[in-house]
Simulated scan of single mutants.
Amino acid sequence: MNPLAELLEANERFYAAFNGRDLVALAELWDDSGPVACIHPGWRALTDRHEILESWRAIFQGGGPATIDCRAPEALLLGGSGGEQLGMVVCYEAIGNALLVATNLFREVEGNWRLVHHQAGPCNEPPAEAHTKPPLSPLQ
């Protein structure tokens, strides 16, 4: 498999873990070898891995969205320093009739893509590719 396909697969695992409410799978995806960050819409920035995993637990327990449908993912390889490989997936998150734009940044660790940053926020002007299912409205 090529690196871009592997990166997209890691991104799919992230959304599958969310949709399955699988904290173990999320913990396996989030990198534990360096800095991480997560910015949920309307939340302060989280930069502690434990705090990030607890935020997902709180979302699951607090009746957060039932599912997130990842749309129009675009994988980009960023290189890195000292042989470290970084990759980013920019995508759209359909949550009911709302649409967010998201960035998921991954670091390759021992041949596996590990999540180091997730940020999602409102999207008022999505590309046509994000409208592959029923029409969506931006999150207000």
Rank of each mutant, 00 (worst) to 15 (best):
N112S: 12
S33A: 13
L105H: 02
V89E: 06
T47M: 13
L46C: 04
L29P: 04
P135M: 03
I39D: 00
A102K: 05
L105P: 01
A37P: 00
R114A: 06
E9T: 15
P126Y: 06
A27L: 02
Q140I: 06
P41L: 05
E6V: 00
G42P: 01
A75V: 09
A37R: 12
H50C: 08
A5D: 14
V89S: 04
H40M: 03
C70H: 04
H131L: 15
N11A: 08
L86S: 05
G82E: 10
A72C: 14
G63W: 05
E129G: 03
G121H: 08
L105N: 01
L115E: 02
P135G: 04
W113L: 06
A72E: 05
I95A: 05
A16N: 07
R44W: 08
L99T: 08
N19R: 09
A75T: 11
A102G: 05
T132D: 15
E12P: 00
M1Y: 06
R49I: 11
A37M: 12
V89N: 04
D31M: 07
R114K: 15
K133N: 07
P127A: 07
E54P: 02
H131D: 12
V36L: 07
S33V: 11
N112P: 00
E125Q: 11
L78K: 12
M88N: 13
I95P: 00
G42F: 09
H131P: 00
A94L: 05
A27F: 00
G111H: 09
H118L: 04
R21G: 07
E93G: 04
S137G: 14
D22E: 03
P35F: 14
H50L: 12
V109A: 05
E9N: 11
E51D: 15
S33E: 14
G80K: 12
S33M: 05
L8G: 11
P73Y: 11
D22P: 01
T132F: 07
E125I: 09
L23R: 11
C38E: 01
G34L: 05
E108W: 00
L100P: 01
A45C: 11
M88A: 14
L26D: 03
S55C: 12
G79S: 11
A102D: 04
P41N: 10
L115T: 03
I39K: 10
Q119E: 14
L53M: 09
W43P: 00
W56L: 02
A120F: 06
A25H: 00
